[in-house]
């Protein structure tokens, strides 16, 4: 079996793992590091449940090989913290942005990138920006309200 050893930082902790070369970042996080908050809804790049931050940018963990992450920094839902993250979590709960919770980690991480940009979004823009994350439960109304309000609160916190 063809194995690789990958060294990377996950949630600010240095990690090393030796895994089959075919291992995706999602499976590395879930199986080697026990970070099962990164969910797999399709493994086709469409649903966004597996979204994590790779070197600060949201990516599909199901479409990224673990091996390609050599030397990179990964943040998963378990490691997402700070004022922006807490505002997002509070807004999600307040606005009814989750039901079963399966899409939630990916939603939160996608929202996090938007919140950090400190840019007001119209409803249409927010929908567009979140269009890469599928939720089968909520019908998105609560998610979009939460995203916009987390962004607004982030901007307010700095003024």
């Amino acid at each position: 079996m063809s194995e690789i050893t990958v060294e990377l930082t996950v949630n600010r902790r240095a990690r090393t793992a030796t895994v089959p070369a075919r291992t995706t970042l999602a499976d590395l996080l879930r199986d080697s590091f026990g970070l099962t908050g990164t969910h797999l809804g399709c493994e086709q790049g469409v649903c966004g449940a597996c979204t994590v931050l790779l070197d600060e940018l949201p990516v599909r963990a199901c479409l990224t090989l673990a091996a390609s992450c050599q030397g990179s920094e990964v943040v998963t839902i378990e490691g997402l913290d700070g004022p922006d993250a807490e505002r997002i979590r509070a807004a999600f709960s307040r606005e009814g942005a989750l039901q079963c919770g399966f899409c939630t980690p990916g939603m939160v991480l996608s929202c996090y990138e938007l919140a950090r940009r400190r840019q007001v979004l119209t409803r249409d823009e927010a929908c567009m920006a979140m269009s890469g994350n599928i939720c089968r439960c909520t019908g998105y109304n609560g998610i979009i309200r939460a995203v916009r309000s987390a962004i607004a609160e982030g901007i307010e916190s700095e003024s």
């Binding site: 970070l35 099962t36 908050g37 378990e78 999600f92 989750l98 919770g101 939630t104 980690p105």
Partner: peptide, 21 residues
């Protein structure tokens, strides 16, 4: 009443079938 299920899902601590160890 705010949902009591939210906290675990928002922190990635839900335990779905694929997460069982």
């Amino acid at each position: 009443v705010p949902r009591r299920e939210d906290a675990r899902h928002l922190s990635g601590n839900g335990s779905f079938l694929a997460d069982l160890r």
